[in-house]
Design a protein around this nucleic acid. Structure first.
Length: 474
RNA sequence: GGUGGAGUGGCCGAGAGGCGAGGCAGCGGCCUGCAAAGCCGUAUACGUGGGUUCGAAUCCCAUCUCCACCUCCA
């Protein structure tokens, strides 16, 4: 069975055929760092993180490049309004994005290039486009000539004459309303630090060119997969593809787009102001639960976010954690290497190979956990061990292995030493309660349990003694 | 106007011609001193109207509703 992925360009699932056997090059449009990350941003990042993990698990060496757009109109405007230097403003939010990605277990990309760090590459590509007749200079700015490139509109099936007129720039400088800026001449009110020398005078890069230039630098003229949010298809990705191909490069072989997070059916976005900030969500829920909530819906389907979304995800996460903890106590935890290489259930593989069918894959995990819990009750250690290994391996593919270091002890945010000390203290209470229970002194036993519960410590009685855990909800 | 997507049980969500994914919530039961956790059971779902078929949530026609992109957006 080979991996099949839905290609936005052809609107069908296609077998993933890498350019180079055993390798996968991915360019992912990262954030424009002009405001704080919301859960929609994380959804996209998690979707492609799962793609990376599945490719790696399938034996590919993945090179994932995720850019940072650290200069654009809004960044300059917002920084100016706030009385900040634009570069400090951009870096502040770049750090917030990185922290948010890391919090939900998104792997660090192989490269994380910034637009402002690649001015030479950008200038080189623009000069190439001017030289071959696909771009023209006007008043110190350079525009891409959409009418000059017959492939324009190929990605999103747009016919130039059917599009509504663009309103992003005065028409007088452009030959066609849909021509877009590759290079923007410096305006008098813009800071000197936001300007670079070019053959056309001082200025800064347009929005789309940086991705073409950086993809070219890190992944070459042609690469396997280009990803991003659905809203980037047009005009951003269309323009990227047009300028790269007009420059003579093959560019992306396959396009993947992740869908939005919606609230009451409407898209969550910066401009609508209905974005749920990552910082707000993580103040009330575990990061793993957020990741699970974001990954649980197929990446091409809208994810309807409601107040219960995180509660449900937390319940599922607690179920996974609970099984892994109980099973590990009973039969021992497999090593990380074993988890990373264990054979995966066929149904899981089939689901993931079918355009990353995470919802179906999750169903397999739940079935495995149920079987494991049943085996635990039945005392079938062999079955428990098998279910534990299978469950952790599958969850590992989704970046949600409860036994992985990044999630261990996350609830308290506590160090191993602190957890050890807490365990020492709670054990004393558990022993006292066991003595009370043995004496059928239920009042004392319940009082101990209630007192611990008040501190956020949950006691569960089992056949072979009581165990404790921290409550899921803070 | 152009392009694309969606309507599935209380909720979230898979599936895509024939055995009713999975989760959450609910209800009944088992277990438990009581809980918690866990396990077992439990829903006659597929926007509407036609059609094709032995058989349709899945195919065809029509129709309604919603969302998005075409301006910045994951």
């Amino acid at each position: 069975m080979t991996l099949r992925l839905y290609d936005t360009a052809t609107r069908e699932e296609r077998d993933f055929v890498p350019m180079t056997a055993g390798k996968a090059g991915i360019y992912l449009c990262g954030p424009t760092v002009q405001s704080a990350p919301h859960v929609g941003h994380l959804r996209s990042a998690v979707a492609f993180d799962v793609l990376q993990r599945w490719l790696e698990r399938s034996g590919y060496a993945v090179t994932l490049v995720r850019n940072v757009t650290d200069i654009d109109d809004k960044t300059l405007a917002k920084a100016a309004d706030a009385g900040w230097e634009w570069w400090a403003w951009a870096l502040r939010y770049e750090r917030e994005f990185q922290a948010a990605y890391a919090a939900v277990g998104v792997k660090a990309p192989a490269a994380e290039p910034r637009a402002t760090g690649h001015i030479p590459e950008i200038l080189g590509m623009i000069e190439r486009l001017v030289a071959n007749g696909h771009a023209y200079e006007q008043g110190g700015s350079v525009y891409f000539d959409v009418r000059s490139f017959v492939g324009y509109g190929a990605l999103t099936r747009q016919a130039l004459d059917d599009l509504s007129p663009a309103q992003d720039a005065p028409l007088e400088d452009k030959r066609d309303t849909h021509d877009f800026a590759l290079w923007k001449a410096r305006k008098d009110d813009e800071p000197a630090t936001a300007s670079w020398d070019s053959p056309w005078g001082p200025g800064r890069p347009g929005w789309h060119i940086e991705c073409s230039a950086m993809a070219h630098r890190y992944l070459g003229e042609e690469f396997d997969i280009h990803g991003g949010g659905l809203d980037l298809r047009f005009p951003h990705h269309e323009n990227e593809q047009a300028q790269s191909r007009a420059a003579g490069y093959g560019f992306a072989r396959l396009w993947m787009h992740s869908a939005w997070v919606t609230q009451s059916g409407a898209k969550m976005s910066k401009s609508l102001g209905n974005g749920l900030l990552v910082s707000e969500v993580l103040a009330e829920h575990e990061p793993a639960a957020l990741r699970l909530a974001l990954a649980a819906v197929h990446y091409r389907s809208m994810l309807e976010y409601s107040p219960s979304t995180l509660d449900e995800a937390s319940a599922q996460w607690a179920r996974f954690q609970g099984f892994v903890a109980r099973a590990s106590e009973k039969v021992g935890a497999p090593s990380a290497a074993t988890v990373a290489t264990a054979e995966l259930p066929a149904a899981f593989v089939e689901a993931m190979d079918d355009d990353l069918g995470v919802p179906r894959a999750l169903a397999v995990i739940h079935e495995t956990v149920r079987a494991g819990n049943a085996a635990l009750t039945a005392g079938d250690d062999a079955a428990v061990a098998a279910a534990l290994l299978a469950a952790r391996s599958m969850l590992d593919v989704l970046g949600l292995d409860p036994g992985a270091p990044e999630w261990a002890g996350e609830k308290a945010g506590a160090s191993d030493a602190a957890m050890g000390a807490l365990d020492f203290l709670v054990k004393a209470d558990i022993e006292a309660r066991a003595a009370a229970r043995a004496a059928k002194d239920w009042a004392t036993a319940d009082a101990i349990r209630d007192r611990l519960a008040g501190a956020g410590i949950v006691i569960s009685d089992g056949a072979d003694g009581a165990r404790w855990s921290l409550a899921s909800e803070s």
